[in-house]
Design a protein around this nucleic acid. Structure first.
Length: 688
DNA sequence: CTAGGGTTAG
């Protein structure tokens, strides 16, 4: 009888183990059923512990709790199995309450229990004392800093709960620091955004004659990625290959990520292509590497490749792909991914939800962004930033400020520099000059955020746009850092808008120094002279462009209809619907003129007659795209037009008329922002 | 029968 139980026990143990290894709840339940059949009438204690371990490791919390509850005499082993599974699967609360439960039963946690308890306590909020309490309990039970497992777990817990002093002290007290202790220092320094410390810790490990392992290597690449240490990372790449770490999937994944973050998508791809084994992390890293380097098409192709090679649309996969859509302004694709997220039950994941808010905001669907945003119960910094950014895109300063206020008052999240960039941008575009400037002036004392170059660019834009170019110039002159292209660009743009030719010339000359090849600035300056009637100077700039070989970026606009992108250039005659488009445009021209429209031809080529100029502006790419949209897209659907340059002044004026005449919503996304035309008006209030 | 440090996303 006893022997039979033992034999059955060995068989069962093997069955439990293989169910856990293959992560198969089906195999697990089968092994459980077999145990019930073989061992009657009652399961022996060690099988009860096995069952708790099985269900806990398979992430079946209800079954694990039931197994623990049905154990007539639970031991420290059953409890530890439960706690460890819960901690590994990010369920810290059940883990900690089981820990408290075993103490109440008078069971003494052992050196296997404490590491899992610390792992659970590591995800407690920063102010929580649960971690330190468990630590003092472990000391009371005699686990001194020389127990590597216990103290490494405590060390990691102190780092993850933001108690850096205590972590540092524990680390210094450890008599024999193993590689795991060094790794805890390295990985947490990366997570906290101190990559330099990670690299220092790596050299500390080497000086102490420790051998790095896979985890140390990943942390090192992560640090190089975070600090953009391309050449250090490349050297380390060579070393890692020599040590034979290059067979490890995680190491290769972190290499892909490293090259991607260091703007070397090509090198990332070489690593990715050389991988013999890939997991979903590999695909996500490579998709992100493309998306972060402006190669959205490649990113999207890779996403489709991952799906067709059987990868599941995980939270990671979908949020990577959504970022790609945001960069591509691919609203239709983004909607499709939204549907994928809903079907896969991951749309409430905070990363996916924030990515959706971001995507809708950037692709011109603020209403959809809002709807998702207001349903997110646990908003974090990125969620708030994405929503405020969405309002900034359409220049809705009022809502941006309201949401910013909500964020501050909710108290859970403090703004970061991106929040301030987004709010000030919204103020700038929405004409809330006073509010925006006040925020800029007080951000240091109110939120402890040091103004960065981005904030200067925003505030120069804010002031200059509102006609205060001189104040904006004073802000630039008072800067402690070197003004960037965006700073001078903001000033130049506003000077052109308000005809401040002299200051505009100063800004343009700075821009020519900083970026001699950029055509946009030359065109802007030339147009500025042209609209001031200073044709000679305008012509000079054009001639200079020709001399140094700068070509004007060809402007183009595009409309997506039935999954086909229709691209238009100015004076395009090649489109299959050319005749219909021209017919509609001339009909619209008459209707608009009857409604009081006057063409704005001041930037058209200046050697043309006035009448020719009028025809000229009627061949702009955005007007061709709009006419195509009006013909093809049914009346209830808004027409969405993308443009690679800024929308032209005349097209902006014309679109307002057309939106009213035909009673359609027209949404234009240019290289700067959205314009939503409706009933003879534009969402930007002509302030752009 | 139970244990620590890990790669990807907004």
């Amino acid at each position: 009888m006893c022997g039979a139980a033992a034999d059955g026990g060995e068989l069962l143990a093997a069955a439990f183990e293989s169910a856990i290894a293959s992560r198969s709840p089906r195999l697990g339940r089968a092994a459980h059923a077999r145990a019930l059949r073989l061992l009657t009438p009652a399961l022996p204690p060690f099988i009860c512990a096995h069952l708790v371990n099985l269900y806990s490791k398979l992430d079946l919390p209800a079954a694990a709790a039931a197994a623990l509850a049905s154990d007539p005499h639970p031991t420290v082993v059953s409890f530890t199995a439960f706690i460890s599974g819960a901690a590994q699967h990010a369920r810290p609360l059940p883990a900690l309450s089981a820990f408290a439960g075993m103490l109440r039963l008078g069971l003494r946690p052992n050196d296997f229990t404490f590491p899992s308890a610390f792992k659970a306590a590591a995800s407690a909020p920063p102010r929580s004392t649960i971690g330190p309490q468990i630590h003092s309990l472990s000391l009371r039970f005699g686990y001194l800093p020389d127990d590597a497992f216990v103290s490494c777990a405590a060390l990691d817990m102190y780092f993850k709960t933001g108690r850096l002093m205590l972590a540092r002290r524990l680390f210094d007290e450890m008599p024999n620091r193993n590689v795991v202790a060094w790794n805890a220092v390295m990985t947490n320094a990366v997570l906290d955004g101190r990559p330099l410390e990670t690299i220092e810790a790596y050299f500390g490990l080497r000086e102490a004659d420790g051998l790095p392992n896979v985890v140390s290597v990943c942390a090192f690449f992560n640090a190089c990625a975070g600090a953009m240490y391309l050449s250090l990372g490349e050297q380390f790449h060579g070393f890692v290959v020599k040590c034979g770490f290059q067979m490890d999937v995680s190491v290769l994944n972190s290499l892909v990520d490293f090259y991607g973050k260091c703007r070397c998508a090509g090198k990332a791809r070489v690593v990715f292509d050389g991988m013999r084994v890939r997991n979903s992390v590999s695909w996500c890293s490579m998709i992100a590497a493309y998306a972060q380097n402006g190669a959205e098409e490649e990113a999207l192709a890779l996403y489709l490749g991952a799906r067709s090679s059987g990868e599941k649309p995980t939270e990671f996969m979908v949020s990577c792909a959504l970022t790609t859509c945001a960069g591509l302004l691919g609203l239709d694709l983004g909607r499709a991914l939204h549907a994928v997220a809903v079907r896969s039950c991951i749309d409430e994941n905070i990363f996916v939800a924030s990515a959706l808010v971001d995507m809708y905001g950037k692709c011109g669907g603020v209403e959809d962004a809002e709807q998702i945003f207001f349903e997110i119960s646990q908003k974090n910094l990125v969620t708030w930033n994405a929503m405020i950014g969405g309002y900034a895109h359409i220049g809705d300063a009022r809502n941006a400020l309201l949401v910013f206020d909500d964020m501050i008052r909710s108290g859970g999240t403090s703004p970061n520099y991106i929040t301030l960039v987004n709010v000030i941008t919204a103020c700038s575009r929405g004409g809330f000059t006073k509010e925006g400037y006040e925020l800029f002036e007080t951000m240091r004392e109110r939120f402890g955020i040091e103004p960065r170059i981005e904030h200067y660019a925003c505030v120069v834009d804010l002031l200059a746009r509102a006609g205060m170019e001189e104040q904006a110039y004073e802000v630039i002159q008072g800067m402690s850092m070197r003004p960037s292209i965006s700073v001078w660009g903001a000033l130049l743009g506003a000077c052109k808008m308000h005809g401040k030719t002299e200051l505009g010339r100063i800004a343009a000359e700075k821009l020519f120094e900083l970026d001699p090849q950029d055509s946009g600035n030359h065109v802007l300056l030339s147009n500025m002279f042209a609209s001031a009637g200073r044709w000679a100077e305008a012509t000079d700039i054009r001639r200079e462009m020709k001399n140094i070989g700068i070509k004007k970026d060809p402007g183009c606009s595009w409309v997506t209809w039935k999954n086909v992108v229709h691209v238009f250039r100015a004076r395009d005659t090649k489109h299959e619907m050319h005749d219909e488009i021209q017919a509609l445009l001339s009909k619209l021209r008459k209707q608009m003129q009857a409604a009081g429209y006057m063409p704005d031809t001041q930037y058209a080529l200046y050697d043309l007659e006035e009448e020719e100029k009028e025809s000229e502006v009627f061949q702009h790419s955005e007007k061709l795209a709009l006419a195509f949209g009006l013909i093809c897209i049914p009346p209830c659907v808004p027409i969405r037009i993308m443009k690679n340059l800024r929308i032209c002044v005349d097209c902006h004026r014309a679109f307002k008329f057309i939106s009213g005449i035909v009673g359609r919503d027209i949404i234009v996304r240019d290289n700067n922002r959205f314009h939503h035309f409706k009933q003879f008006e534009c969402s930007c209030g002509d302030y752009w």
